[in-house]
Structures are given as C-alpha cells and as structure tokens.
Simulated scan of single mutants.
Amino acid sequence: MSTADKSPSRRRPPTFGPEPWPHTAPPGEWSYWDVWFAVVCVVDCGGDWDAFDVRLTRERSGGVMRGAYLEPLWSHLLDLRERLAADGLGAAELAGGAARDPKVVARARSKVWRQALEGRAKTAPMRRTPSRRLSERALTGAWPRFPVSPQGPYEAFVGVVDLDRHHGQWATMAVADALTEATVAEVAEAGGDAAILLAVRRAALTRGVRALRVCDDSCGTLGEWLRRTVAEYAAVPWRQTALPADVFWQDFLELLGEVGDFGGTSRQEAELFTHAGVRGDLDLVEALACALHSEYASARWDFRAREILGLRAYAQVAAGAVDRFTATATVLGSEDWQPLEAMVSCALRQGDAAAARAVLRAADRPGFHQDWTRRRAIELDRELGGEGYA
C-alpha cells in the first residue's frame, strides 16, 4: 500500500488537567486534577488529605515562602475536599484503580509535586483562589450597602478609562490623566452631596487599583494619583451619610490593603485613619481588624494578614491610644518595622518613654525585622538614657 493510501495518524490532544476524567470513577464530575490529587494522596500520603496538604506546602514552597504555584493547587485541594465530603468519599474511592497504574502514578506525581502550573492547566478553583476572592471583595464587596452605590460612578469611569489592554509607561500617564479628569467631573456632579461624593471617590479607587494591576507605572504617575485619591476618600464626611460605621470601617480596612499593594498608603497610614475619624470608633476598628486577620490567616494570605495587624497599629496611633500599643506589638512581633516605629514615635511625642520601650520589648521575637527591633531599642535607650535594654 502506498503512503498516499495511508490515512493520516491522529495525535491524541494533550491533557492539561481541567478535562473530565474519562475512566471508571465514582459517580459525578471529576477532572484529571481531581484524580491526580487522589492518586498522589493515596500513594504518597496514605490517603490522608491533611498529610497531603502539608507535603504540598513543603514541595511547592521550598520550606521558605509559598511558591507561585502553591495557592492555586491548594485552592483546588480545598474545593476537592469539600466535594468529596459532600459525597461521603475519601481519596481511595476517587483514585480507584488509577492508584495502581504506574503510568498514572508517575504523571500524577509530576503534575502535583514538580511541574509548573500554566494558565491553560488551571481549574476554576485554581483561578478563583482564596486571596483572589478576598481581593475582589475588598474592591466592590461592600458597595450594595452604601447609601449610594459606587457602581454607577464606576461604570462612568469604565467608559473613559480603558483597561482592556496592557498600558506601557507613556500610556499609563494618559490613564492617570483620564482618571483625574473623570474624578473631577464626577465630584462636580455630586454637588456637595456626601453620599454621592463617597460613592464617586470609592469607585475611583477601585478603578485606580485595577489600572495599576495592568499598567506599567514606572513613572509613578498613577501611584501618586492613588495616594492623593485615597487621602481624599478618607476625608469625605461619611458620617453625614446613612452608611453604618461597621460597613465603612470593614470596607476601609480591606481597601487600604489593596491600595497599599501599590504604595498608596505609604507614610500616610495614620493620617488616613485620622481623617476618617477613627478615634470614636477605635474599639470597632480593632475588632474588625482582628476578624480580618483571622480570615486572612485561614486563607493563608500571609502578607495581607501581617498588613492588617499593621493597620491596627496605625489606627491606634491615629487615636493616640498609647495604652494599647504593647498588646498590638505583641501580636505584630518583628514582622514589620514601620508600624512599630509609628507606635514608638507616637509614644515619645506623648512623653511616654516607658510605652515606647515596651513596644520594642514586646515585638522582640523572631521575624523579618528582629534585628531592627533590637537596634532601635538600643538607639532609643541612648537617646533617652536609663537602664538599658534587656
């Protein structure tokens, strides 16, 4: 038979992971990733999902930091465990005979423990990770409870600020100009109505954060716009509106986390809380910050969990609540030196050297900035004189 008579061979399309598992499995919809996870859990972790979780963190983080591929995989693990629990299934039931197939085991190990995770291989839970969901909530989640929803002004910003493509450095300057012009126009239309003004400024911040996610802000123009805009938002007389205090402060804390990712709060954190009028609501703000810290920690969003502790400190500084500094420093530790310095400086301004020293003693625990904490304590003792730092 000539080669012309031969039908062209059909190559089997590659499998990336989100595709449905085609072989025998428990009833329901299971993907390749589902089965690969179950196979590895059975073969390498004795069918124990908690042990699998521990090893996944170790393998994908190198034991130091959570790697870029860890959270999407962990997010899929959370979703898979929920679905299995709902069906009353364990890893062994899902893996079935696949756990005894050497080829499947080899591929599952490679996919789960070693290979980089590319975009087309991601399942829906891998894309909608816990931190991503919390981040999106921070940008728009509270809007339905505003007396005037920021959604309307936001749509106006969308109409004039194009973010459908990546913007280089020069185009980013045009984006900043467009945001500035649109904000001025929307503020003018508010006509001094505090509820409308609050919605306009809040919408502008969300559009600005989303702009910074896709723009090249090497020139810093957009970042500087963000700093000004968050300060203007904090100064809006929100108490004149019907917005409940718990809604404002929860949203404010979450928003500052997003804005802070782009330097929008740098060196003005306490000032923002002062303008927003934290003094009368400090107990509420602390309670909300503690709840957010627990939520971020449960989501393993470590850096945001640290940031919210810092915001708690800045709120206390803004309120001049020196008597609360030591307890906050105890929780914060030496992970972040800036809120520690803010508390120390505030205590010194109020003439309370003992409180300043107590902050540094409380924070002197293993962390990123323990060396700074100890150096600052020595410097403080030299400045003030006294018994020294032990």
Rank of each mutant, 00 (worst) to 15 (best):
T3W: 15
T3L: 15
A4R: 11
R12I: 09
R12G: 05
P14I: 13
P18I: 09
E19H: 07
P20L: 11
H23R: 14
A25D: 10
G28R: 12
E29T: 12
W30S: 01
V35H: 02
C45S: 12
G47F: 13
W49S: 00
T57A: 13
S61R: 07
S61H: 11
G63I: 00
L70D: 06
S75G: 09
L80Q: 09
R83F: 04
A86V: 15
A86E: 14
G88C: 01
L89H: 06
A91Y: 12
A92V: 13
L94P: 00
G97W: 12
A99N: 12
D101R: 13
P102A: 14
K103L: 15
R109Q: 12
K111F: 14
V112L: 04
R114T: 15
Q115E: 15
A116Y: 10
A116G: 13
G119M: 10
R120Q: 15
P125N: 10
R128M: 09
R133P: 01
L134W: 12
S149H: 00
S149F: 04
Q151C: 02
Y154R: 07
A156E: 13
V158M: 11
R165T: 11
Q169W: 03
W170L: 07
A171S: 12
T172V: 02
V175N: 10
A176S: 12
E181Q: 02
V184Y: 01
A188P: 00
G191E: 05
G191C: 04
A195K: 01
I196N: 03
V200Q: 04
V200Y: 01
T206M: 13
R207S: 08
L212H: 06
G220I: 08
G220F: 05
W225G: 01
L226S: 06
L226H: 02
R228V: 04
V230L: 03
A234G: 05
V236C: 05
V236Y: 08
P237N: 09
R239T: 11
T241D: 06
T241A: 07
P244W: 13
A245C: 03
L253R: 02
G257Q: 04
V259H: 00
G264E: 10
T265V: 10
A270F: 09
F273K: 02
F273T: 01
T274P: 05
L284E: 05
E286Q: 15
E286V: 06
L288A: 11
S294M: 08
A297H: 10
A299L: 03
A299N: 03
R300V: 07
R300G: 01
E307T: 07
A313N: 06
A313V: 12
Y314P: 03
A315M: 10
Q316I: 02
A318S: 14
A321Q: 08
D323E: 15
R324P: 02
R324S: 05
T328L: 07
W337M: 12
Q338N: 06
P339A: 07
E341Y: 10
A342N: 08
M343L: 08
D352Y: 04
A353K: 07
A354Q: 10
R357S: 07
R361A: 14
F368L: 13
D371V: 14
W372M: 09
R375E: 15
A377V: 05
I378K: 13
L380W: 03
L380S: 03
R382K: 09
R382F: 11
G388V: 04
Y389I: 14
